[in-house]
């Protein structure tokens, strides 16, 4: 508790009023898959209550970086991460860190909607239950309703909460996965191409949702759609061949990028 207030004081003293707050900090991050290096000395800060888009051609390392933010790479045996990644100043690769708790604070939404083969209700309540966030039926009902409302899905499913989540449409399933992610009250949400399997209308719904979620969460999104990155994010980071090429305000990156590789990529000139 003391540490928290110290950190808060430091923040207040060091940061001018309009200085953005950094939620996650990546310093000299390198990632290796066996002998192959996938990321080279990436230095990237993730701002609080902002949407940061990671863009770049396939194999550029953007998903690798995203997955290193909540240690999803731990699930790959040969994967090795060096450098520092911090969440609110705390090293997330510290051996003392509880990875399950970390992933509750840094949630994830995947490319393909992947609801559990359970009811809509169970999908949402599963996380809070295993993390001990709910005690009784009333708690559970509340968290289910709140999460589904936040994910913009409640009105569509309120009469069939006990039907299988897999019976929903693709767009609804993805919003269910977002509801599931926010049910455990994360601070950061990682999204790995959340709309690539959705039609334009479902995509628009999810983008609207991202826009609303930004107020309460820090969001990092990997997307192959330049237009989507330009629409939903405030900050954009461009990766190429495992290197962070350029990072800056989205408005600038998409109208007047500094690096020729960014220019070539976003205008469709990459060889």
């Amino acid at each position: 508790m003391n540490m928290m207030s110290d950190a808060a004081t430091e923040k207040a003293v060091n940061a001018p009023a309009d200085e953005p707050v950094i939620k996650m900090r990546g310093k000299d991050v390198c990632v290796f898959y066996g002998p192959k290096q996938a990321l080279f000395d990436v230095n990237l800060n993730i701002r609080e209550n902002a949407v940061t888009a990671l863009i770049g051609p396939s194999g550029c390392g953007k998903s690798t970086f995203l997955r290193s933010l909540n240690r999803m790479n731990d699930t790959i045996d040969t994967c090795r991460v060096t450098g520092d990644i911090t969440l609110d100043g705390e090293d997330i690769y510290d051996p003392a860190i509880d990875v399950v708790e970390l992933r509750a604070r840094v949630g994830m939404v995947f490319q393909k909607p992947n609801p559990f083969p359970k009811s809509i209700y169970e999908n949402v309540v599963y996380g809070p239950r295993i993390h001990g966030l709910v005690r009784n039926k009333a708690d559970m009902d509340e968290v289910v309703e709140k999460s589904l409302v936040r994910a913009g899905l409640f009105n569509e499913v309120k009469d069939r909460l006990h039907e299988p989540g897999t019976g929903l449409s693709g767009g609804q399933q993805q919003r269910l996965c977002i509801a599931r992610a926010i049910a455990v009250s994360p601070e950061v949400i990682l999204m790995d191409e959340p709309c690539s399997a959705l039609d334009p209308i479902a995509t628009a719904t999810v983008e609207e949702l991202i826009h609303e979620l930004r107020e309460n969460y820090t969001i990092v999104i990997v997307t192959h759609s330049m237009q989507q990155a330009a629409r939903v994010s405030q900050r954009t980071a461009m990766f190429h061949l495992g290197v962070l090429v350029e990072e800056g305000d989205t408005d600038k990156i998409f109208t007047n990028p500094d690096d020729p590789r960014t220019q070539d990529y976003i205008t469709g000139r990459f060889g």
């Binding site: 330049m226 237009q227 330009a230 998409f254 109208t255 976003i266 205008t267 469709g268």
Partner: peptide
């Protein structure tokens, strides 16, 4: 058709 970006858009 192309949803141009950056220098193309300009």
């Amino acid at each position: 058709k192309r949803q141009p970006m950056a220098s193309d858009l300009r």
